[in-house]
Each structure stands twice: as C-alpha cells, then as structure tokens.
Design a protein around this nucleic acid. Structure first.
Lengths: 153, 153
DNA sequence: GTTTATGCAAAGGCTTTGCATTTCA
DNA sequence: TGAAATGCAAAGCCTTTGCATAAAC
C-alpha cells in the first residue's frame, strides 16, 4: 500500500466513523489526520501543534485534543504514557502490531514484535470473559548504549 | 510469610537501601512504607495522603512524592499510568508477578498472570541487548459485566 | 554543627472547560 | 437556520520546586 493509498484509506475510515457517529466533517479534522499519517514514530500534542503551525495550518490545541479523542475512538491512533504526564501518540492503522521497550536512563523508545502477546490476549479473553480491544506492553530497562557509557566512565 | 514478617522484611530492605545511597532514615519514610504495605491493591498519592491523615500521621504531599521516588528506585513499589495523568502505585515486594486488564467502560482493573510474558522479556533482552528491569502489560477491553449491562438495555 | 529532609505554598506543565464566534448540514 | 466545532483564554488537576524550619547524623 502506497503512502497516497494509505492516506486515502484512513480518510475514508475517519469519514465513515464521523458519519456513523453524527459528527461533522470539518477541514481541521482531516488536516490533523493527514498530518499524523505523514510521519512515522511517536509524537505529543505540542509537536503536532508545531508541525501544523509551521505549515501555516493553524489549529488550536483544544481542537487537537478533541480530535485525538475521535481518532482514538475509531482506532486510527494509539495513545501511550511512557513516562511523566505527557501523552505520546502514534498512528495505528496499517502499522504492524508492535510493543515498546523504553530505556529508563536515556528515554529512548524501541519497538519490537512478539507473537506470544497475541496468545496472552486470547487467554485473558477466554479465562476472564473479557472482550479485548487492544493492549500495551512496556518493557523497562537500560539500553546497551547507556550500559556501555556507564562502564566507560 | 506473615504480614508482620513481611513488614519487617521490607523495612530492612528500605533501611539498607537508604544507607547504601547515603539518605537519611526519617520516621516519615518508614511510616509511608508501613502504610503502603498495610493494604493491597492500587492507590494514588491523594488516597495515601488521606489514609495517613486519618490515622493522625500527617505527612506533606511533597514528602509523599519524594518518598515514592525512593521506593520506586529500590523496587518496593511499582508505578502505573492506567489512564489520565494521575499515577497509580502498588507494592511490589513479595507480591507475585502479575499484569493488568482494565475495562475501558467502568475502569475496573483486574489482575492476571501469564508465564509467556517472562519469555517475551527474555527474548527482548537477548535480541535487543537490553537489560530488562521490569515491565507493564495492560490489556484494554470491556469486562463481561459491562457487556451484559449494555445487552440488557 | 552540617547537611539533608520536611512542610507549606507557589509555580509548572499538560489537559480540560467555558464561552463567543464561526461553520457545517 | 440551528446545532455543533473552533479558538482563545482561563481554570483544573497532578506534580514539582523554592525556601524557611526542623531533624538526622
């Protein structure tokens, strides 16, 4: 799937979601979605605000927060709280399932993928009669770069 | 291990930690530790503050926040961010390894245990050359009670 | 006697809210 | 036209910080 195809695809999903929920299709909402899907990796609200402002597309922070709720609700975006109070987001559609390892010393976030997580989800759903929608596995520790740095001192 | 034994045990661990780090052994710090280990389940700073106040042991919120940092550092307490900005804590010592499933409708938090997580940790450590210290797996979804409630409406 | 910790209140940072204005349907 | 969304600023909430006081070592 090309970048253009994906962009059209997620616009379609968002459009149908807004319609189904009786929400309006404002240009701000689609501009935010487009901006999010134009980049990889994690971002926070302030970063997104800055990126849109630099492209002369000014949206208020309030609208950013409101729109993120909608995008979370239709699973086009994921929200993480790696540390502190500041939420981090990432696009979720057509982005392979993965989890995160975060270095508690330098804050670097790495991605990994392990099929056993899916098995755990299935077991939890079955044993606890729980309808799983998504999950977040965060592995904390110290990355090799930080360990080497400390050893070198 | 009895409750009294565990309390003595964690006091010992904390005491040694403070000594090793050159921190002072203040009565507030031990009172906070004792209060935390007198209860099961999750709690936030405000709840802990209220519980100590109701026992006429008044500590400032600042000291609670400071002490939690120490307890986190010596692994006697875990911190979670299930939702929102408010941190949740739970005691960590002699409390079997477990993870959490949280209902996104009613907010209920359930615990479960799956040995496959340990295997994932081992794999991440090996493949990414990452020194794992701990992890947090959060499974989101809708609990059976909430599903039944909605069906009944 | 020093140095560190406590407590209080103020400041900070991220997020939410209220309300007037604008815009979608 | 009427209801909902936007933008701005103010308020909220949790957490951190600064500084005087108290306490550990």
């Amino acid at each position: 799937m090309s970048v253009a195809e994906q962009r059209e695809n997620v616009r379609q999903i968002f459009s149908e979601y807004l319609e189904r929920k009786g929400h309006r299709k404002t240009p701000e909402r689609f501009a935010i979605l487009t901006e999010i899907y134009a980049h990889d990796g994690h971002f926070d609200i302030e970063r997104l605000y800055g990126r849109m402002k630099s492209k002369n597309y000014r949206v208020s922070r309030a609208t950013l927060y409101n729109t993120m709720e909608l995008l979370l609700d239709c699973d086009l975006v994921r929200r993480h709280r790696f540390a502190g109070t500041q939420a981090q987001f990432e696009k979720a559609h057509a982005y392979r399932q993965h989890d995160h390892a975060v270095c508690d010393r330098c804050g670097k976030v790495m991605e990994f993928c392990d099929p056993r997580i899916q098995q755990v989800r299935n077991t939890v759903a079955e044993v606890m009669d729980f309808q799983v929608t998504h999950h977040a596995l965060l592995i904390h520790g110290i990355c090799s770069a930080c360990r080497n740095e400390r050893n070198a001192q």
